[in-house]
């Protein structure tokens, strides 16, 4: 069953993705069938099974509290689409009026 168009729209907004009409229709269809396939997991009883987020038995990993050398600011900003006075520059976030 295709994904409901309103759900597609909602998820795209959460994912900060602008979709074309064609993509909206195609993803509704494809995601619908992929999720149907994923629902086969419900055949397994996992009521008493703990989830695995990763396979290592690590807890917190600490290092000595010693300052290292960060990347040079110029080298990092050189890759940015826009910057000013040593900062990343973005369009206005707060409306002024």
């Amino acid at each position: 069953m295709p994904m409901d168009p309103s759900v597609v729209e909602h998820v795209a907004r959460l994912a900060r993705l602008e979709l074309s009409d064609e993509e909206r229709q195609r993803f509704a269809r494809q995601l619908g069938s992929i999720l149907e396939y994923c629902a086969t997991l419900n055949e397994l009883d996992t009521e008493h099974v703990e989830p695995t987020s990763h396979v290592l038995t690590l807890t917190n990993v600490f290092r000595d509290d010693v300052a290292g050398t960060p990347l040079p600011r110029d080298a990092v900003l050189a890759a940015a689409p826009d910057h000013e006075d040593g900062f990343f520059k973005v369009p206005p976030i707060i409306e002024t009026e």
Binding site: F27, L31, E50, P51
Partner: peptide, 30 residues
């Protein structure tokens, strides 16, 4: 990439997290 971002965002979103993401993590244990 867009398709996978959509699928992943869906599986993590409110209302679907338990049934999809957490379920998959449990099956991973098995």
């Amino acid at each position: 990439v867009k398709r996978r971002i959509m699928l992943g965002t869906y599986a993590l979103s409110a209302g679907y997290y338990e049934g999809f993401f957490l379920k998959a993590q449990r099956v991973r244990t098995l």
